[in-house]
Simulated scan of single mutants.
Amino acid sequence: MPRLSVSIAFILALALTLLAFIVSDTTVLVALAAFSTLLPAKGIKKIYWVYIFLLVSLIGVFVNALMFANTGAPVLEFHGFTIRANAVEGFVRVTLRLLIIAGAGAWFIASYTPFEIARGLEKELGIPKGVSFAIAYAFRLIPLVARDLAEIQNVRRERGKRTIPLLPSDLASILTPLLRTGYERAVWTGISIELRGFSLRKIRREFKLVYR
């Protein structure tokens, strides 16, 4: 079955991401979020972790809305705390924007392998191979970081520590091994591709609309 070429898919995902920042009308944001969320429906098993990260991030979005935009008419009373209209509206808008970005990115990641992304961006859009490889490597790195985070949380759980960071010390003990592992992985990946002649590789430009 024909698929969109990497270049067309990349432009579509980038356009959706830009629209998420530009559009302010809530109705349009809802339509874009619905479209973007339905895009990766067939490959949802490959990118479910994107939506897990999204759900976790919504906690911070809601707290931020309560701290900086909790004004207007009262909407809900909870244990003596009043949630107001502007906080709810701000939370909804940011959530819709994140859904658009997450859906577009998840669809792009699920549709192509990192190798296809790197080659497609190089050959079809003329993006420098170092940049295209970095983009493809970032997509490849996200599930690896998710796996590393799960392993760190398992170790913390076995030691009787919190898996969800509540204090700066908790956050530091999670981020330090995560960043160290990611840094070493990136260094050795760079060494590996240079040993294989990455900087000497020639690229032939070729633009496609679809793949068969």
Rank of each mutant, 00 (worst) to 15 (best):
P114F: 08
F62K: 05
V30I: 15
W107D: 03
S57Y: 13
F81L: 13
Y211V: 04
G190M: 03
V145T: 08
R159F: 11
I59D: 04
I152D: 01
L167S: 14
L99E: 06
G105F: 15
L125Y: 05
G90C: 02
S173I: 02
A106I: 05
L29I: 04
L195Y: 07
P168D: 09
T163A: 10
L167F: 15
K161P: 07
T26Y: 12
V92Y: 02
T17F: 14
E122W: 02
S169C: 00
E122N: 10
A41N: 13
L96P: 06
H79N: 03
K208H: 15
N70K: 00
V94E: 12
D25G: 01
A172Y: 10
R159A: 11
L4K: 11
A136S: 11
G182K: 01
A106C: 06
T82G: 08
G120N: 14
L66G: 08
T163G: 14
T163E: 14
E151K: 10
L39T: 00
A33Y: 09
I109R: 02
S36M: 13
I164M: 07
W49Y: 15
T189Q: 15
S57F: 08
F53Y: 10
V187Q: 07
A13F: 08
L144C: 07
I100E: 11
I100Y: 07
T26Q: 09
T26C: 03
E122C: 02
V92A: 15
V187R: 13
P177W: 00
V50T: 07
Y112T: 04
Q153I: 05
G197I: 04
R156N: 03
L29W: 09
I59T: 12
K129E: 02
V50K: 03
A87V: 06
I100S: 02
S57I: 02
I100A: 12
E194N: 08
A146K: 04
G190I: 07
K45G: 11
I44P: 03
P165K: 08
N154W: 10
R159E: 15
V75W: 05
D25I: 07
A104P: 02
I52F: 14
L195F: 09
L32V: 13
G126L: 11
P114R: 05
N64K: 14
V131Q: 01
S111C: 06
I109K: 01
S36W: 04
N64T: 15
F198I: 05
N86G: 01
S111Y: 09
R97P: 06
I11N: 00
I8M: 04
T82E: 13
I203F: 14
G103I: 07
A136D: 00
E158V: 15
L141T: 14
F108D: 02
R140C: 04
N154V: 03
Y48I: 06
T37Q: 08
A13T: 05
E194W: 07
S36D: 07
S24L: 13
M67A: 10
Y48G: 04
S7Y: 09
I193K: 09
P128C: 00
V92R: 10
A104T: 03
P177Y: 01
V94Y: 11
K42I: 09
N154E: 10
V92W: 05
T82C: 02
K129C: 00
T189R: 13
L141I: 05
L200V: 06
